[in-house]
Amino acid sequence: MKKLVIIPAFNEEGNLEKTIQDIRENAPDFDYVIINDCSTDGTLDICRRHGFSYLNLPVNLGIGGAVQTGYRYAFFHGYDIAVQFDGDGQHSAKYLKEMVKVMEETESDMVIGSRFIQREGFQSSALRRVGIRYFTGLIWLLTRKTITDSTSGMRMVNRRILKKFTEEYPKDYPEPESVVTILSEKYKVTEIPVVMNEREEGASSISLKNSIYYMIKVSIAIVIAAMKK
């Protein structure tokens, strides 16, 4: 079975080496690919110098377009499973094996690593937790499914979803919206508890200034995604 780790990277020079080392040590049966989304720091240099496997986007596409590049690559190269994995040191590769196991045992189409099942490790700020809980409620209302961490960037998909994501993936703030799209098409989504680390370097893609726009945009996107079917 071919498995790929997709690492979207925008200005992640400080964390990238550690992330790749983590994957090589703790998930050796996975291939990986870094997607450099026109970083303005030394991300590309580091990829070249270390001979990392990377995709270099010619124009900046934002997180959705960058991740979709990875899904597209995985689909074209015949991968059975692809997992999205942040390059900022928040995620640990030791969970990848378990995610595959859970995916096979529960016959899920998507497995999400959730911070809020066991409530251990980095829990994000209180304000963000409120936002994420609001999404949990909204998603439950629309799909009758409970997703405790819909914003989690640690998500594994099988080939069926890989094909779907290659065709269509939201451009910005894609995580909650894409989960709802999948749920409303009656695919199976399972969450497993993971512990995430606090970001070591680099900044979150969602600043306080953007958070109001984020909440409104994602809310509308979720409602529309639930209506599509």
Binding site: L55, N56, P58, G65, Q68, T69, R72
Partner: peptide, 9 residues
């Protein structure tokens, strides 16, 4: 852009 990146790799 995505196709270009993949083709280059």
């Amino acid at each position: 852009a995505q196709e270009i990146a993949i083709m280059r790799k």
